[in-house]
Design a binder for these strands. Sequence first.
DNA 1: ATATGTGAACGTTTTCACAGCA
DNA 2: TGCTGTGAAAACGTTCACATAT
Lengths: 214, 214
Amino acid sequence: MSQIGYVPPTTVQRLPVYLRCLILAQSQRREVLNSAQIADMAGTNGAQVRKDLSYLGEYGVRGLGYDVDSLVAHLVRWLGLEKTRRAAIVGFGRLGSALRNYGGFQDRGISVVAVFDADPDKIGSKTGDVTIESTEHLSEAIARENVEIAMLTVPASVAEEVSAEVIAGGVKAILNFAPVHLEVPDGVVVRQADLAADLQILSFHLSEAERART
Amino acid sequence: MSQIGYVPPTTVQRLPVYLRCLILAQSQRREVLNSAQIADMAGTNGAQVRKDLSYLGEYGVRGLGYDVDSLVAHLVRWLGLEKTRRAAIVGFGRLGSALRNYGGFQDRGISVVAVFDADPDKIGSKTGDVTIESTEHLSEAIARENVEIAMLTVPASVAEEVSAEVIAGGVKAILNFAPVHLEVPDGVVVRQADLAADLQILSFHLSEAERART
DNA sequence: ATATGTGAACGTTTTCACAGCA
DNA sequence: TGCTGTGAAAACGTTCACATAT
């Protein structure tokens, strides 16, 4: 039924996880999985999996489960990964270069087509088949390369300014590793990847446990 | 009032953000902030900030706002960052070494006291004042160094096994960069840091916008 | 006058439980 | 029989609005 409309943010967050699990299942030659099996691999429960998938359409078969290949195809489509997404890395320090060499992207629908840094010593050198460019004419270069997603691994002090430039260049999605909140116009999505914050959340749970032990 | 008890997970997630904003305010010699000003820096709203902080206690002054220094002290205490937390990096590939050299931790209450890798060529070499150890006797080394938090930057195929070993060594908190769900016993907390998943979520929003343009 | 702290209202997400279908 | 898809219920999170304090 259900003409698809709204997909809740919490569901969107889980879709890449389901996709990953299904691709793993594919590699194990598993052809059909039920919601409980998917949930097991993903770390949720069957009801959640079924509700989540139901926001996208009716991809299961009652009494059987989900055909792995077909569900993978649907998820890839919903996540917009049919054509590879063009991404840029701004800030080629340690984290930036780690991202550049992280295999997990190429395999999963994202391709790094441009890399930028402010350091003149780095500019002009190559990383794979991509030449590191100056941040001087950032927005023009972003526009020229048709970059859709920018990963910002620049110092916090310049992140806001860099964000404005990539947006001026046409970027509509930003993965921000700098520990600052970015203010962006409507229609631009930001995801915050703050590793220190993650560790501090873990630390909170450690001290909670310590408090409980008293 | 309120004898403090439960702090909702969503609130816990925002506490490190507030702390970061307050430390920035300190460096700007701002002595008092109200909830709206904190919210502005953090990317939320005043009501949210007040509710969140109210789960921890009554740290504000009516008619005035929050004393920055004292609120920083309270947050540091709640996040368990008074004594520096001892962390280990397991897997010294590109991402692992990027984390090792990421300045953001030392400043924010977390110290990397041990680094592990399976590659014999890396074992024995130094990164700063830490010697890279073999993953051979991982759990013993984790126990010996009193590691509380483990960052896993190992291949997905071995993440579950490595996770079991660090837990055997006494680790109660894991930041997992491997794209697999880890099954852990009660009392152990895992945070998942899946960069490819973040990018795929951004890609979903891009295709949503494309769908809307039709 | 001003801004916190908080119940109550509202909105969202998860879980339940079962009708509907292979 | 077995498992999906989904309304309804329960749990959870956010926003409102105002009494309360300085």
